[in-house]
Design a protein around this nucleic acid. Structure first.
Lengths: 125, 125
DNA sequence: GACGTTGGATTACAAATGTAATATTTTAGG
DNA sequence: CCTAAAATATTACATTTGTAATCCAACGTC
């Protein structure tokens, strides 16, 4: 398991694009984010560069441009964020957090039965 | 409902102390955090001051010292953090996040039945 | 082959954050 | 009163983050 870099808010947007759309050129990333943010293209380039320096993305050369792709797993990053969120806000105790989350969430009947299934699954372990 | 200030990681620790132990002097806060962090007392004073500037804590004078107490609701702050967490990491979709949370959490049998109860409650609405 | 265009590399710069140290003001004790 | 101790207030300073702009190199065009 790689060492996970710290990914701040704005870089998450870029990572989410790269995770979902695989290797993209900088301009493609810019295009993906148009409408979702008001960032100038240069800003997005900067974010990509920073992610590279942290080792969160890599690239393959394609002619004179680069195609960027994630170098860290989305699942791992998400897990880490979840963990650090719980620690920060709830001091590490998970259950009250989950309870609050569940109570507060707007859930469809489907969502609910899905989640119950997960719990029952765990119950059996 | 007040406007909620932004509370960064380290200040959360201070807020959690104040939320749980009511009005405290700076030194009492320091004492509460001893062992939990390696911060120097001065650092903690700084954090308190910043929280005051943001309006997250207020104080009453007691002789020459102050007793600090939270000026914003824990529930509200936590809700906001939860919300911004989901938005950042999952782009706003709550269910997959909850699913991942539940799957990943270490839960006792009790926790599980508690959480199921919450879900059933919501089911009935 | 000079030149504009297009991409990446380098630089910019303010605000927020982490982590304190120094300065100043009270006040309790001698 | 004068001073040491204790509190608060002010100042410090490196990093990180948000948000770009400028510089430079390669490429395709006339």
């Amino acid at each position: 398991m790689q060492k996970l870099p710290k990914i701040p808010e704005s870089e998450w947007l870029v990572m989410r694009v790269l995770w979902s759309k695989g290797p993209l050129t900088a301009n493609e990333v810019v295009k993906e984010l148009t409408g979702k943010t008001k960032w100038k293209p240069k800003t997005i380039k900067t974010l990509i560069t920073r992610l590279m320096k942290k080792g969160a993305v890599k690239f393959e050369k394609e002619g004179r441009k680069y195609r960027y792709y994630p170098a860290v797993s989305e699942a791992e990053c998400v897990r880490m964020e979840r963990y650090s969120f719980v620690r920060r806000v709830y001091g590490g105790t998970t259950r009250p957090m989950l309870a609050a989350f569940l109570e507060d969430a707007k859930l469809s009947a489907e969502d609910i039965s899905e989640l119950k299934k997960i719990l029952e699954q765990k119950e059996g372990e």
